[in-house]
């Protein structure tokens, strides 16, 4: 018997009440998906297709209106880094540990080796405003990782970065994910990012969101944007989105 998937959605729908008594807005309709342990699933879709809603359902921040949903505990990495401006980087990264009751010094000791691995050495005591955008996202990712949840939910983690930093961060994340086998759900509107980082690419329809394509990515990591498999899959994903002619 195959192991139980860590995340299972069966016909999940979620609708938001309209503003000022307007029409209710369906965010997700009849969405089903499975994510196995250790998989990196990239969810790609147009703006406003309910990607964030999907992640919030996985993280237990919302409940579905109908359908069945089960997920292992998940930590969220929000779109904006949302670092606390009054804490040095090391304490921001250690936030989950502190919430769990770990003393500050012990938490800092636990975080320290990660700063080296993440290329953040020397910035332990820097405040968020002293860090570059890419560094802030790395601290934010570290905070998510150290929450110690089986599932990482990443909500367009690099959308706010400039193109060069984004490419660097994608390569960096690919490397980190190859080392630490975690179950990851990555939401993005960037098809290339989805193909570079995901084991599977799920394509969502415009609102109300459903999964319209489930593509398995071939090829070993790290992938490059010019690999034949990447180019081919990108074309298929764009086709599923109805973009490519």
């Amino acid at each position: 018997m195959a192991p139980l998937p860590l995340i299972a959605f069966d016909g999940v729908s979620r609708t938001f009440a309209g503003r000022r008594g307007g029409e209710p807005v369906p965010a997700l309709r009849d969405l089903s998906l499975r994510v196995a342990e250790g998989e990196t699933v990239a969810v790609v879709g147009p703006s406003g297709c309910g990607k964030t809603t999907l992640l919030e359902l996985i993280c237990g921040l919302q409940r579905p209106d109908s359908g069945a949903l089960r997920s292992a505990p998940a930590a969220l990495m929000p779109q904006r880094d949302l670092l606390l401006p009054w804490l040095p980087a090391v304490d921001n990264a250690a936030l989950a540990l502190r919430v769990r009751g770990v003393a500050r010094d012990a938490a800092r000791r636990e975080v320290a080796p990660w700063f080296e691995r993440f290329g953040l050495s020397g910035f332990e005591t820097a405040r968020p405003h002293e860090l570059s955008g890419g560094m802030r996202q790395r601290v934010s990712f570290l905070r998510t990782l150290l929450a110690g949840k089986p599932v990482l939910s990443l909500d367009e983690p690099f959308a706010a970065l400039d193109a060069i930093t984004r490419a660097e961060m994608q390569a960096w994340l690919a490397r980190i994910l190859a080392e630490a086998t975690r179950t990851v759900v990555l939401v993005t509107h960037d098809v290339e990012e989805a193909v570079l980082l995901g084991d599977r690419v799920l394509v969502m329809s415009p609102r109300p969101g459903r999964i319209v394509a489930d593509l398995t990515v071939q090829g070993d990591r790290p992938r490059h944007r010019n690999d034949a498999a990447v180019v081919e899959l990108r074309a298929r994903a764009l086709e599923a989105l109805g973009v490519a002619a």
Binding site: E56, L61, P78, L82, L84, A96, R98, V99, R100, S153
Partner: peptide, 19 residues
């Protein structure tokens, strides 16, 4: 969004308030 983030880190009402 910060309050949501704290919820995913299992912070209770008091932890979210203080931190």
């Amino acid at each position: 969004d910060l309050i949501k983030l704290m919820r995913t880190l299992d912070a209770g009402r008091w932890q979210t308030f203080v931190r």
